[in-house]
Amino acid sequence: MSTLEIRDLHVAVGDKEILRGVDLTVRSGETHAIMGPNGSGKSTLAYAIAGHPKYTVTSGSVLLDGEDLLDMAVDERARAGLFLAMQYPVEVPGVSVSNFLRSAITAVRGEAPKLREFAKELKSGMDALSIDPAFAQRNTNEGFSGGEKKRHEILQLELLKPKIAVLDETDSGLDVDALRVVSEGVNRFRASGDTGVLLITHYTRILRYVKPDFVHVFAAGRVVEEGGPELADKLEAEGYEAYTSKAASA
């Protein structure tokens, strides 16, 4: 049983304050959707939790099972059980997917998987996401299509088995088939054990496949409304307009 607790989080990029006091708690077994218009600070939340150096936490706290994530280096957060599926994963030329994944698994688990077991694990993970076997020998994210990048991120999610997963716009740029495959991966991960998911999205369509327990609406760096899955339906019908005008006048 794990808990990610975000308390009164303020985050700036340079001099500009992006997050202006975010409170959120994600427990194992729960899926939270964060929805909001472009520029509302959704992705900033994801990168600040993971520790990207561009984002400065000016106040507040982020605890994972009582441990302060903000005191940890990026890699320590990952080893503590946090995972961020990125919207734009970067290329690492000359490093094969297979080599990259084995290094990541070794780092997170604290010991290198036996080669044969790793090969088996990798193959079954790739099969489940309908990834071509040749993919493992390609350079990490180099020349990947949008869909390949997202599948690769979800493959990592399934292999690294974090306690809390943050998925940043995992649905963006996917066609219907790819969206279904990726969503099934997220659902397998949810079903696999005591894990919590924080799903960041602009659109409601991924929520048809990955049913959230809670929906939080983000505007101007704050959570402005919270509810159950029905809130997503309301957003689908009405859009963000009501929230953006409210935030602007606040």
Binding site: V92, G94, V95, A107, V108
Partner: peptide, 28 residues
């Protein structure tokens, strides 16, 4: 790049390890 280091470190690799991986890839 900062983003390359961040990506690898967010997968659990220490800073030196991440740097070595990037350099190894570069000379591969």
């Amino acid at each position: 790049s900062e983003d390359q280091l961040f990506y690898l470190m967010s997968r659990g690799l220490g800073e030196d390890e991440a740097m070595a991986m990037i350099v190894r890839g570069f000379v591969e």
